[in-house]
Nucleic acid binder design. Structure first.
Lengths: 196, 196
DNA sequence: TGCGTTTCTTATCATAGGTCAATGCCAGCT
DNA sequence: AGCTGGCATTGACCTATGATAAGAAACGCA
């Protein structure tokens, strides 16, 4: 069950099988149904998720009832609610499963505890956090500077397989536009490609 | 010179004066003139900045020559270019000084090296990175869901003192709108407050 | 003190994208 | 097979914000 997670780790850091078995005591795998709610806004989350299979998302709901997708987490991605994780504060966002999903559940103390015995886990954590930051900076830059069409093209390039798995209104919600607008953008793109 | 930095650290982690003096060998303070360019897009950055006084910013320039501000860094804030820091990749963004600025220059190996002797520095790093992430998540949520006016009000609340120090076109650039739009928003807000 | 350079405002016009409503489509149920 | 409830598309219309241009005000430097 945890094999893919072990592979993921060993790909990134120098981790022996013995070290992994030390770690794996503290890990659990949990399954979620399609559309299952995993974390409510306002709840305090003590766990991060590493997706083994399926697809999670975190999102907010604004005052007009509209949904805004903060992050998709397909296979091999982490999804962690940072308010609860480190500061014991209630979550700003919701988390649920878009597809039936299996995920490794990582308690907030996991990194602290394991890095005592397996120091490289610290580096991994560090790398992941830094990666997450530069990823989000690029997204912010996109939202500041690009048109709907540019954002969509960028999305397709970045997540070719998500583009197929996720309903379009969710992609629109991630891009910060309405489903109708995305539909129009797609229409325009189709025309462009027929008449180049 | 490093006193404010020491105070900053000791406020957040359990750090003795002796430990700090071990650390401080590896730190340098550098001064920047107003408008001095600190990092160009494409360059590889090996240093993070902790602002002692003054104000830095990171930003991008799009294909039409427009500037988009990714981050402001006033006193007590960090500004770190993540591509260079951990992955030795060229920067996506520019960094310069909006005001005459003094900043602690922290080399990318600093955290690794110091945390050997002073383990709490690791926790600090971790907390900072997590904080940065949840901060950016909120910003993304804003950009996805809020109008120009809402974003501006939120900015004022979040950075009351920056609102005064920074020219409005930079605030507009941070909010993802034009200076003209911001001017309109401000006018509307003024009217609302006179006729409530 | 005065002059040039930024910055801010205002007005007008243009447009990307939002809203609303209708329609058609498809997948999952019973 | 026939319903049903999401999705996606389309069209007509609307609105917030962008573009452009010009003047006013503030700022920085000689």
């Amino acid at each position: 069950m945890l094999e893919p997670f072990k592979a993921y780790l060993q790909q990134r850091v120098d981790l022996t099988d013995e070290q992994f078995s030390l770690i794996s005591d503290k890990l659990k795998v949990k399954s979620f149904d399609k559309n299952e709610m995993i974390l409510m806004k306002g709840d305090v989350s003590s766990y991060g998720f590493f997706v083994l299979s399926g697809l999670l998302r975190s999102y907010s709901i604004d005052s007009k009832g509209k949904t805004h997708i903060i992050q998709f987490a397909p296979e091999q991605w982490w999804l962690t609610e940072r308010n609860g994780m480190l500061f014991n504060e209630p979550s700003d966002f919701f988390i649920d499963a878009i597809e039936p999903t299996k995920a490794v559940i990582v308690h907030k103390d996991f990194m602290n505890e394991t890095s005592k015995h397996v120091p490289c886990m610290n580096d991994l954590n560090n790398t992941m956090l830094n990666n997450s930051i530069r990823f989000m900076q690029k997204r912010i830059n996109m939202l500041l500077s690009a048109t709907a069409e540019e954002r969509y093209l960028n999305f397709i390039k970045l997540y070719p397989n998500l583009t197929l798995r996720v309903p379009q209104w969710m992609i629109a919600s991630y891009l910060g536009i309405t489903p109708e607008s995305l539909s129009r953008v797609r229409k325009d793109l189709a025309h462009k490609h027929f008449k180049p």
